[in-house]
Design a protein around this nucleic acid. Structure first.
Length: 217
DNA sequence: CAGTATCG
DNA sequence: CAAG
């Protein structure tokens, strides 16, 4: 009893915010790994530069993307899919940094998804005005595996809806270091990001970087 | 429809 | 006219 109280008092205050059954926001979860995370992102962007993909409808996405891991998410006129090779360079995507994998596995575990080992990390770069309309992540093989989303840089408003597009949508402000995890009952829920407001972050400048971890294969 | 344009 |  006393040991429990002492333990609780010695831990940083964790304010986990459940969004619904199967989805939770872990406030500040990535802050401890901020420096190595940013260094790894910079190295990845050097090998596989951010680029604007085109939707199957032929429209340019406002968010700039790259990938790390054995598979990377891509979109073009042929559709959405995962590819082992960067279409721009013909080379494999940069490998998943150890700090990425460790963070994703730990966050998933905290959210109740033990044994999550991502093989793909989609890296999205937002600038003021960038948005991502409501969609589902449904290009992966195993929907029993969760999605882990890490926010870095300037804040954004995350949209989290339900399994049907017309379902009510919650607005969730996300700050530097916040992590969202959604899985099993909420794995196919719609989600998106409102257009970013003009803002500045001391380290990342006028940008938000989002890491989205998936088990694609 | 991982999009925009148009409207109240 | 910006936000939704």
């Amino acid at each position: 009893m006393i040991t429990t109280d002492l333990f609780a008092a010695s831990q940083p205050a964790r304010r986990d915010e459940p969004l619904c059954d199967g989805a939770v926001v872990l406030r500040g979860f990535a802050l401890a790994d901020e420096a190595p995370l940013l260094q790894a992102i910079e190295a990845i962007a050097t090998q596989a530069p951010f680029r604007h993909l085109v939707t199957p409808g032929g429209l340019r996405m406002s968010v700039a993307m790259t990938n790390a891991g054995s598979l990377g998410w891509v979109s073009d006129r042929r559709g959405y899919r995962y590819e082992a090779f960067d279409p721009d360079s013909g080379k494999p995507w940069p490998p998943m940094p150890e700090v990425f994998q460790r963070l994703a596995t730990a966050a998933a575990s905290c959210a109740g998804f033990a044994g999550f080992v991502p093989d793909a990390c989609l890296i999205n770069r937002y600038e003021p005005g960038t948005r991502l309309s409501l969609h589902q992540d449904r290009d992966e093989r195993d929907f029993s595996q969760p999605i882990v989303s890490v926010s870095l840089g300037i804040p954004a408003v995350f949209l989290f809806g339900g399994p049907r597009r017309a379902d009510p949508v919650r607005r969730v402000p996300l700050a530097h270091g916040d992590v969202v995890v959604w899985g099993d009952p909420a794995r196919l829920h719609h989600h998106g990001v409102l257009a970013l407001k003009p803002n500045h972050h001391a380290v990342l400048g006028d940008a938000r970087i989002n890491l989205t971890f998936r088990r694609a294969d």
